[in-house]
Amino acid sequence: MKTAKLANIADIQTGPFGSQLHKEDYVDAGTPIVTVEHLGWRKLSNKNVPFVSESDAHRLSKYSLEQGDIVFSRVGSVDRCSQVSENEAGWLFSGRCLRVRPNDPMIDPDYLYYFLTLPKTQEFIRAIAVGATMPSINTSLLGEVDIDLPPLSEQVSIAKVLGALDDKIAANQRTIRDCESLSEALFRKTSATADITTLGKELELHYGKALPKKSRIPGKVTVVGSGGISGFHNEKLLDGPSIIVGRKGTIGTVHWISGPNYPIDTTFWVESKRLPLELLYFLLKSCDFASMNTDSAVPGLNRKNAYQVVVPWISDDSASEIGPLLKTLRARQEHARKENQVLARTRDELLPLLMSGRITVGEAEEAADEAASES
C-alpha cells in the first residue's frame, strides 16, 4: 500500500494570528468563525459560534473553509478534528485551529478524515506535539503524519461504510433532540395555565451515597455525580429509570438515567409522590436551582430550600393525559441512544481494521448490517 506524508497530499494552513483578528472584532451576525470548542466527532458544532463582519470575512478570505476540509485543534487536544460539510462552506477558522485541505485528486477527503481519527494516528500527533503545559502543533509537525493510501476507489468505499454508520448516529441524535424538544413543549403547554404548588409536595430528594473512585469496582452500573455520568461500578443503589439532581459542585443539574445506577454523595435522587418520573423530569428542569447556592467554597443546594421552590401544580387528569405521551417519547430517545452505542462501537472497531486491510469492505458492510439489526 502506498504511503505519503500529509504535507505532500494536502495544504495545511494555520488560522489568523491575534494581530489579524481580535475578540472585539466579533459581531452579532455575519460570517461564522469556528474555534476549538466547535470541533465535534466528524461534524462542526454551530452552538455559540461567533461572527465577523462582511469586511473582515473578505479580508480573512485566506482562512475560509470548503466542504471536505478538516479542521484540527492547534493547541490543547491536538488530536481533535472535524470535517467541514456543505453547511459550513464559507465559514472561517480561528488562530487556535489548523485547516487540512487535500490537494491531490487521488485523495478522498472523507477517507483522509477517518484516517486522521485512527487511534494510532492520534497517538502519533499527541507524541509530536510540543509544549509541556499546553501541547501544540504547527503545519510542519502535522505534515509529518504518514497516510496510508489504497486506490481511490477503495478509499471511497471505506469512507462510505464508516460514513453510513456516522450518518445513522447523527439521525438518531436528531431524533433524541426532537423528542426532548417536543416533550418540553408538551410540559410547557400543560403547565402554562396550571395552579402552583411547592416542589416538596410533589417529590422527595434523597442523598446519594459516597463512592470514592479508589473504591469502585468496574462493572456496568452507571455512577452519577452532580455533573453527570462519572464512571461505572459493579454495585447499584437504584434500578432506574432515575432522576438525579446535582447537589454539590454543579448544583441543580437534572439527569435522566435509564438503567441501574449509583448516585454519589454530590447528588440527590428523586422519589415521586404522585407524578410519573417523565413529567417530574421536566418539572425539575424548569426550576432555577443554580441561583440557590448556599455555600461559599463549593456550591451547594440545600434540600429544605429546594422543597420551597414554587412549581406548576399538574392535576391528576393532566398527568394522566401527558404522562403516556412523555413516556413514549422517552422510550424513543432511549432506543436511539442504545442503538447509537452499538453503532459507535461498531464504527470504532471497523475503523482500524479497514484502514489496515485486515478486513475487506464487504466484510465491514456485513458487520455494519449486523450492528443495525442488533440495535
Rank of each mutant, 00 (worst) to 15 (best):
K2I: 07
L6I: 09
A7S: 13
A10N: 08
G15D: 04
F17R: 11
D28G: 06
G30W: 02
T31K: 03
R42P: 06
K47D: 04
S55D: 09
D56E: 09
A57Y: 04
L60Y: 09
K62H: 12
Q67F: 05
G68T: 04
G68F: 01
S73L: 12
G76C: 15
D79S: 15
E86K: 12
F93N: 05
D104W: 10
M106W: 04
M106K: 11
I107L: 07
L118G: 10
K120T: 13
R126W: 14
V130F: 12
V130L: 14
G131C: 15
L141D: 11
E144D: 13
I147Y: 05
P150D: 07
S153T: 09
E154T: 08
V156Q: 06
L162K: 00
Q173A: 12
E180D: 13
E184D: 10
R188C: 05
A194C: 14
L203R: 01
G208N: 05
P212Y: 14
S215L: 14
R216N: 13
R216D: 08
K220S: 15
V221D: 02
E235S: 14
L237S: 09
I244A: 03
V245T: 01
T253K: 04
H255T: 00
S258M: 08
G259E: 13
P260T: 13
I264M: 06
P276F: 08
P276C: 14
L280K: 00
Y281R: 03
Y281P: 01
K285P: 02
S286W: 00
F289D: 00
S291Q: 14
N293W: 06
D295G: 15
P299Y: 10
V310I: 10
W313D: 11
S320T: 13
P324Q: 11
L325Q: 15
T328Y: 15
R332Q: 14
A336M: 08
K338V: 09
Q341A: 13
A344F: 05
R345A: 11
R347W: 01
L353E: 02
L354Y: 00
S356P: 11
G357E: 05
E363F: 01
A367S: 09
D369F: 07
